[in-house]
Amino acid sequence: MGLPSSQGMVQRLVDEHYAALYRYAFRLTGSASDAEDLTQDAFCTAQLKLEQLRDPARAKAWLYSIMRNAYLHRLRAEKRQHVVSLEVLADVSEPPPDPLPPVDAEQLQAALNELPEVFRTPVILYYFEEFSYRDIAEQMDLPLGTVMSRLARAKGYLRGRLLQPAGAVLAHGQRGARDGL
């Protein structure tokens, strides 16, 4: 006997998207265990609210939206502090070096963790490549211009932290231990 249609649909969503959703969760949280918890919570919510998914072609965006909402809910509960203040994030001004240095995985996650969530989410979605500017704007319920601005600043920050020679500073210099939210 086959699975009932809703159960089959949920299984298809898991089969097709669980890995990408986990990676997104990992980049958001910086922790494998938190990422797994978040991924489970997101799929449980999706199973509960499956009737909201009217267009199967929008499944990925819908799941990412659920994931982000679950993550924001946790952030509010944990009152996480961020290291980087919004003011120090500059637009990309330095051209990337040639050749590009290898990216250290721990440094990448540390740099992401330092970003306020409103910058971290769009840059993660951007680098997962299948999300266009318009998709990101829709995900975050923001104007396109705001997304472009935040992406430019977040990309600049990551490149400054990860692709510039050691000791290089950002265009506006200082990092502060202030809450960026």
Binding site: V14, A19, Y22, F26, R27, E36, F43, V103, Y127
Partner: peptide, 21 residues
């Protein structure tokens, strides 16, 4: 492309699919 590859380079834990189901 360089940063994107690094960003996506997250190993998925073994057994995650089964635990989810």
């Amino acid at each position: 492309h360089h940063l994107g590859q690094a960003m996506r380079g997250v190993p998925v834990p073994e057994g995650l699919h089964e635990r989810l189901l």
